[in-house]
Computed example of a mutant assay.
Amino acid sequence: MLFDSHCHLNSDKFDENDILEMIHTARDHNVVQILVPGYDMDSSQRAVELADDWQGLYAAVGIHPNDANGATEEMYQKLRDWAQLPHVVAIGEIGLDYHWDTTPKEVQFEVFRRQIRLAKEVKLPIVIHDREAHADIVQVLREEGAKEIGGIMHCFSGSWEMAKECMDMNFMISFGGPVTYKNAKRPQEVASKVPLDYLLVETDSPYLTPEPHRGKPNQPLYVRHVAEKIAELRGMEFEEICRITSENAERIFNVRNPFVSL
């Protein structure tokens, strides 16, 4: 069985029929657990609703750096309230994004730091969005003592040296569709080296669709291609990568597979 550790079923690109079909198709192919991360207040609310409606779906709630303008105390309190719900298992996705010039860096830093502190308060791991901000991400995580709660480096694109620093702070390293791309030498190098107990797989659906479906909208079913590529890179059986990454996700999110009898 597989755990898609980052999938935006709460995206406005999907309607209810899309979501229903994708979940059933994924489950037919043993992708049975999915983390749905928020990126603003509306998407966080939707993640919570999906996690309430579907066994095996879990929510993360948070404010993405590209949506950090206008963050208020009321929003932080709402995140705090959601964090008490049983199917909310992380704060995220949060972090820094220097690719899009939509939010001043000082605002991104403030909102990122506030949410790390909130996560420490509610004792949940954090899901990190890092786009072209590697050094600053590591610095903020260190300064804020994020090692206390740990979390996930979502769709990791940094170096092996950065991966080691993140793992030293109790962060798992998650790989998505880009690890399947022909010229993705750095993600493939890191994916082949990460210790197995720090390894996760994801889709980031509807984005970053893996080969051989690149160019189409991503969906949770396609996490299988990510796991297959990592198994190939490491010279391991696909089923073993499925088992290991699912157990890792269950451990960091403190959940258990509802489809497996104890």
Rank of each mutant, 00 (worst) to 15 (best):
K193G: 06
A51N: 11
E202S: 10
E148N: 03
H24R: 14
D28S: 06
S11H: 05
A51S: 12
S44H: 03
R224P: 12
D52E: 15
E21N: 06
W82C: 01
P195E: 08
V255R: 02
E16V: 04
S246L: 09
H154G: 07
G235T: 08
K105C: 03
W54F: 14
W100V: 11
Y76H: 00
S205D: 07
C166N: 04
E232G: 00
L85C: 07
G92S: 06
R113N: 02
F171G: 02
N218C: 01
T102P: 05
A83W: 05
M75S: 00
F109C: 03
R224Y: 14
R46M: 15
D168P: 03
G235R: 08
L20D: 15
L9C: 04
A47E: 01
V201T: 10
A184W: 14
A227H: 06
P86V: 04
E49V: 08
Q219E: 15
S205W: 07
A231F: 15
L199H: 05
E148Q: 11
E73N: 11
P206N: 01
V255P: 03
N183R: 13
C7R: 02
T245W: 14
S174A: 07
F112E: 02
H6F: 04
N170E: 07
N17P: 01
L233I: 07
M75Q: 13
R256S: 10
I152S: 03
G70F: 15
R234I: 14
I91F: 02
E232M: 05
M172V: 01
H134I: 00
R224H: 12
W100K: 08
M153H: 00
R80H: 15
E247P: 00
L96C: 08
M22F: 14
D101I: 05
L141E: 09
A135S: 13
E211P: 01
L96I: 07
R27E: 10
A249I: 12
L124Y: 06
E21Y: 12
T102W: 12
C166M: 15
E148R: 07
N183K: 15
S246W: 09
E93W: 03
G176V: 13
G62A: 04
R142Q: 10
H6Q: 10
G70E: 12
V88C: 02
I63V: 14
S205T: 15
E161S: 05
P220S: 02
K120E: 01
V48K: 00
E202Q: 12
S157L: 06
G92Q: 00
K182H: 09
L200F: 09
G145Q: 14
D197I: 00
Q188R: 10
Q33P: 04
E240L: 01
C242A: 08
F3N: 01
L118W: 13
F3C: 09
A119N: 11
Q33L: 10
Q84D: 09
E143N: 15
D4A: 06
K229I: 08
R234T: 10
H129G: 06
A184E: 12
R80E: 13
L200V: 12
V140L: 15
Y39C: 11
S246T: 13
A227Y: 13
E144F: 07
W54E: 13
S205P: 06
R256A: 06
R251C: 05
L208H: 03
V32N: 13
I137T: 08
R214V: 01
K185V: 11
H213K: 11
V179C: 10
T103H: 12
Q55F: 01
R186T: 06
E93N: 00
